[in-house]
Design a protein around this nucleic acid. Structure first.
Length: 459
DNA sequence: CTGGGGAGGGGGCCC
DNA sequence: TGGGCCCCCTCCCCA
């Protein structure tokens, strides 16, 4: 007996009792359920395209989309709220209008609602996620995030940080980097409402059951995100942003200093991450703002919403700065200790505190000192001040630095290199020779290096 | 175990 | 728009 979907769009399959020549497969109720859902969705999509039984008009920047209110209700928290607050009369047509995303983006969302196929690529993922956030479609948000994460490979930073930075000889680092490039080249994602069901089936049943002519529902072609990342990415997870940072990053930093072999490869990954972040910045949609805040004079205040979290900022530049905490981008490395920072001011503060001993405070007795009675003590790349009394008491005299160690005498202490991907130049921060002398007045000098050839030698 | 200080990270906002 | 400053928060270390 051959069973054929009535819509004619599904692949034929055979029942368990069919004694035909094709391999016999056992069909479970879950299989049937998935097939039925798939067929039903296709039917609804056909009805939408033929504008049959459409009872909802969605106006997006002047363009009208016809849809079924029950489908929208079941797919979007926004429509759920809208339709439940609206008329209970099922005969009355319902309209909704949007100006916060483009018709193209809503078409992608609507196609997903009716087909389970999400047409994501690197240039639309931010806008799709922003729209999905507006429409409260958490599944779409999650998979957009998964797409972005695979694009940036920031999961490597968050999930595998410890293992990753502790790599010694037989590390899978190379594999990891290849995986980063492979995943970031992936541009199209399809996902299905049955994805979770399918995953569950795979867990519960042997793979052989779905081989051969099995009518597999269109599953997720992108690797499903790690459970931990999905868990972490849930909106309103209750875990504060600051809480989620913290010890792991700090630990990674300390290891960064000690694991030189890992450091080189890490820089490659970070460089790749920076490049991908730049691509995302370049593709930031023109409309990412939400009007939800009002000034004192009751005029609406436009703010930019982060597509990764609920944070909003007034300026696009602030959003770009904020996005670094999601992308893991750290474009400001300290060449003295290889620690990387998200902002130049943090790098400067770190350098002055750790490597220059700019603070006029005795580290031991905490008393304020002057340039005269406070001497700079050097321990490795770290410098701090001690008063004359503490120096005599502690016997630190052999550690006192005259501010002219080897690195500084040569060609200035290189503070960091940032690759400028847009114009293929490097921006290099160097410390002048005199800069390490206390309060010389000179500060960070910014040099622009034309070619990236310097980079290899620098690293 | 607890409190204080150092260091780092992020937001708001001014220039 | 970027740089920079100020402020606050969190984490870690140490006494």
């Amino acid at each position: 007996m051959e069973m054929v979907c009535e819509s004619g769009t599904c692949r034929p399959y055979r029942s368990a009792g069919d004694a035909g020549h094709l391999p016999v497969h056992k069909w479970t109720s879950a299989d049937m359920s998935a097939i039925h859902q798939s067929c039903l969705l296709k039917q609804l999509d056909q009805q939408r395209q033929q504008e049959l039984f459409c009872d909802c008009n969605v106006l997006v920047e002047g363009q009208i989309f016809r849809a079924h209110r029950n489908v929208l209700y079941g797919s979007s928290g926004y429509f759920r709220m809208l339709l439940s607050q609206g008329s209970k009369d099922t005969l009355e047509s319902v309209s909704a209008s949007f100006d916060v995303f483009s018709p193209d983006i809503f078409a992608i969302i609507l196609d997903f609602i009716y087909s389970g196929q999400l047409e994501l690529n690197s240039s639309n993922v931010i806008e799709v996620m922003s729209a999905a956030s507006y429409l409260q479609m958490n599944d779409v948000i999650s998979y957009c995030k998964a797409f972005i994460k695979s694009f940036l490979e920031i999961s490597a930073k968050e999930d595998d940080e410890n293992r990753y930075l502790c790599l010694s000889d037989s590390s899978p680092l190379q594999d990891r980097r290849e995986n980063v490039i492979e995943q970031s080249n992936m541009c199209d994602v399809s996902m299905s409402p049955q994805t979770r069901l399918w995953d569950q089936q795979e867990d519960e049943q042997p793979q052989e059951e779905f081989s051969g002519t099995s009518p597999q529902p269109s599953g997720l072609q992108l690797n499903s995100p790690p459970e931990s990342s999905l868990e972490e990415e849930q909106y309103g997870s209750g875990l504060p942003e600051r809480r989620r940072r913290g010890s792991r990053k700090r630990t990674a930093t300390s290891r960064l200093v000690t694991e030189d072999t890992s450091l080189i490869d890490l820089q490659g990954v970070v460089s790749h991450c920076t490049q991908k972040a730049d691509e995302l910045y370049a593709n930031l949609p023109s409309i990412v703002g939400v009007v939800g805040v009002f000034n004192k004079d009751s005029t609406p205040s436009m703010r930019y919403k982060c597509p990764f979290c609920t944070h909003t900022v007034k300026r696009k530049a602030d959003l770009k700065r904020h996005l670094r905490c999601h992308t893991g981008e750290r474009p400001y490395p300290c060449q003295a200790c290889s620690k990387r920072f998200t902002r130049l001011e943090h790098l400067r503060s770190h350098f002055e505190t750790i490597h220059q001993a700019r603070k006029l405070v005795c580290r031991k007795c905490k008393r304020h000192v002057t340039e005269v009675n406070g001497r700079v003590v050097s321990e490795g790349t770290r410098k701090y001040r001690l008063c004359d009394v503490c120096i005599q008491e502690s016997g630190y005299s052999e550690l006192i630095t005259d501010g002219t160690d080897e690195n500084e005498e040569k060609e200035g202490l290189l503070l960091g290199v940032e690759e400028n991907m847009s114009d293929n130049r490097q921006i290099t921060w160097v410390m002048d020779d005199d800069d390490l002398a206390e309060d010389s007045g000179a500060d960070l000098i910014i040099q622009e290096v034309e070619d990236s050839d310097e980079e290899a030698s620098g690293k």
